[in-house]
Design a protein around this nucleic acid. Sequence first.
DNA 1: CCGTATCCTCCTCGATACTG
DNA 2: CAGTATCGAGGAGGATACGG
Lengths: 134, 134
Amino acid sequence: MATRTAAERREEARQAFDAYFAECPSRKLLDRLSDKWVTLVLTALEDGPRRYSDLARRIAGVSQKMLTQTLRGLERDGLVTRTLTPSVPVRVDYALTPLGESLMPLVSAIKGWAERHIEDVEEARRRYDACPGA
Amino acid sequence: MATRTAAERREEARQAFDAYFAECPSRKLLDRLSDKWVTLVLTALEDGPRRYSDLARRIAGVSQKMLTQTLRGLERDGLVTRTLTPSVPVRVDYALTPLGESLMPLVSAIKGWAERHIEDVEEARRRYDACPGA
DNA sequence: CCGTATCCTCCTCGATACTG
DNA sequence: CAGTATCGAGGAGGATACGG
């Protein structure tokens, strides 16, 4: 009888892996970019600062909760700045930081690959779905 | 009284947006790459074909369900091939397709940015968390 | 105008058990 | 060895209502 069962060993491995993941830079970046709204907010800001309500209008379909949550996250990560003007009513502007701007070429690269190759993916998908038996 | 309430207009916008999203190539790619296991499987395959059990061992912590699900998805998208050898017991090999290989530089680019800038992000995060009142 | 707080609903993912 | 089937917990995200 072993000191650990197979399940215990797997669980152990999973936890070690999660810990490894929490420390993996690429993973962190992917997690950020993969968020549904992050890239949209970033691209909405690439031409200059935008007001909160402006962003809400440009990114149609986003809920207040998600927009605020996304902006807070990006601000926390140092990718965007939040500038509050204490007029009445209040006015808040968001803008990309240099760090945020340095991320944009990456987004373009992704966009580029997708545009060049997505048709191949679609095609492969159709072929795969068309042949249930093989 | 308007023909549509604000809520209805938002819902309408959300649906239109979801439809737009379903057609957005960059989005599709990001959704694929953002998956927890996808990049791991891809990098595990970059040095050549691997057997199913080999992948399961190399990618510690992955469940059978997730590994199979990930591989199926990648196969469907034409990024990996699945080769079944009908010996006893069965043997199955997975490998990157040319399309899958063309994606690897992108993964490297992400890795590169992350390694160069993740420290800045961490730093920004610490600063943000340290100052609750500003 | 710019949020925060609460509730509630999918939907993903892991665990487990079984098959060719 | 290489999967499939089923179930249940947990989190992400939307709707709604309220606050500075």
